[in-house]
Amino acid sequence: MSAEAIRPVTDRDSAEWWDRVRAGEFALQRCGSCGTPRFPARAYCHRCRGAEWSWEPVEPAGRIESWIVSHQPFLPGVREPYVVVMVRLAAAPECVMYGNWRGEEPPRAGQRVEAAFTAVDDGLTLIDWRPAA
């Protein structure tokens, strides 16, 4: 990943989540009424519509739901094909997260994975994924 990375266009719901990632924290929102975890960041719980919530650090882990090998040069400075994975989160089975693959071998469906924090620069950290230790 180079400094000319595609920077996320954060919004008023998500800015704090990105700040927490930059600080090395893997957090989800937890509904204060029914306890449902959620990602991405939203003001209301999709299950009970409750407005009370808090950030909760959770296990930075999940399983491979799917993956692609992208041959189109959409990553600045990256010319080789790269792998994007879709990970179903262990702490929130209704939620998926995307990231680049940091494994030696290609990913497999259902494979257990863990988050790999990748600092792009002082202002941006991204979450990638690698095989679970």
Binding site: A5, I6, R7, P8, V9, T10, D11, S14, P40, I68, S70, Q72, F74, L75, V78, Y82, V84, M97, Y98, G99, N100, L124, L126, D128
Partner: peptide, 15 residues
Amino acid sequence: EVQYQAPYGYVAPPQ
């Protein structure tokens, strides 16, 4: 939701 995908080079419908 694009913000959670584009940084990983995941941006286009075929992907």
